[in-house]
Amino acid sequence: MDKSFYAIFKSFFKIGTLLLGGGYVILPLLTSELAEKKHWLTSEELYEFYALSTTLPGVIAINTAIFTGRRLLGRSGAIAALAGIITPSFLAIVLIATALGKIAGYISIKNLFWGVGIGVITLLFLAIKEMWTKCVNDKFSSIIYGVCLILALSGKISPAWIVIIAVICGIIYQQINNQKGGNN
C-alpha cells in the first residue's frame, strides 16, 4: 500500500485507538502496524525513533509518531501521523467529559471515582518505582532526585524551573567529566 497522507493518518488513527494505559505500549503497536503489516520501515528504525523520543520533551507517543510520520512522508507525513494519533483520544475525552457533566452528580458515580482514585495512585506509585529503578542509580542522579523532590514538595517553585535547574546541573556535570577525561 502506498504511503499517502490518508494512509498514514489511518494507520496512526488505529494506533491511537488501541493505545491504552500509557504511551509505553506504542512501540509494539507501531511495530505490528507499520513494520510487520505495511513494511513501511523496519522495527529497528522504529525502536530508534522511540528511544530518541524518550530523550525529548513532550509526550513520548506523540514524539514517536511525529518522527515516524516524518520518515514516511516528510512534513505532511509528520502532520498526518500527529493528527491520526490525537484524533481518537480527543474524540473519546470530549464525549466522556460531556457525558460526565450530566452524570457526575450521581452518588454511585462518585463512589466509582473514589475507588478508581485508589487505582490511579497505585499506578502512579508503580510508574515512580519503575522510573526510580531505571534512572536513580548513582551519586549524581540521587542528588538530583533529592534536590528536585525537596524543591517540588516546597510548592514554591514551578516544575519548569526545576527542569531548567536539572538541565544546568547536567551540563555542568558533563563538562566536569569531560575535563577529567581530558586530564587522564
Binding site: S141, Y145, I162, I165, A166, V167, G170
Partner: peptide
C-alpha cells in the same frame, strides 16, 4: 542524565 531523575522527583 539529569532530566530523568528530575522527572522522577
Amino acid at each position: 542524565k539529569a532530566l530523568k531523575p528530575a522527572g522522577c522527583a
